[in-house]
């Protein structure tokens, strides 16, 4: 699956502007990746690794584990701000992220606290139809 991450990064909070968008990121939703995740981390049920097995459970196909989707959001923040410390992240699973289907993650800076050195970010995983599948909010601390 193509990795379309941008090389735009920020190194400190002074470089962050309110309302700015993080470089979009195409997460690896392939079943190869969910199998690796299942092998080393967990969540190796067929519903996550095998389309046919997932369909037998009544799903439209294999789905990405929620904990992996949450990890995608964290990776996106680190790609944008490599020195950021994510001090809080809350993720809402609105609908399944189907495996082997391209998705895009977008993020927007919604608040900046220069005194604390923190930024608030809204992050969304959408499918090709533009439907929101996962929504997250994060607080990250950046160097001042």
């Amino acid at each position: 699956m193509p990795d379309t991450h941008s090389t735009e990064t920020v190194s400190n909070i002074g470089e962050v502007e309110f309302g700015s968008e993080l470089p979009s990121f195409a997460p690896d939703t392939s079943t190869d990746n969910t199998k690796r995740f299942g092998k080393y981390v967990g969540w190796d049920s067929p519903r996550f690794t095998d389309h046919e097995g997932a369909r037998k459970e009544g799903l439209p196909g294999a789905i990405v584990p929620g904990v992996l989707s949450q990890g995608f959001l964290g990776a996106m923040i680190h790609r944008w701000a490599p020195d950021a410390e994510i001090i809080a992240i809350d993720t809402v699973f609105r609908a399944p992220v189907l495996a082997d289907v391209p998705h895009t993650i977008t993020g927007t800076v919604t608040d900046i606290d220069e005194d604390e050195g923190t930024v608030e970010i809204d992050i969304t995983i959408t499918n090709e139809a533009g439907e929101n599948r996962v929504f997250g909010t994060a607080t990250a601390k950046l160097p001042t």
């Binding site: 990795d3 959001l73 964290g74 996106m76 790609r79 490599p82 994510i86 001090i87």
Partner: peptide
């Protein structure tokens, strides 16, 4: 790696500051 992290701080167990991503 599965999440898409690229920093060796998270992906290389031999890195001096190796640690788990927060999630």
């Amino acid at each position: 790696l599965a999440c898409g992290e690229t920093s060796p701080k998270f992906t290389d167990p031999g890195h001096e500051d190796f640690q788990a991503p927060p999630t």
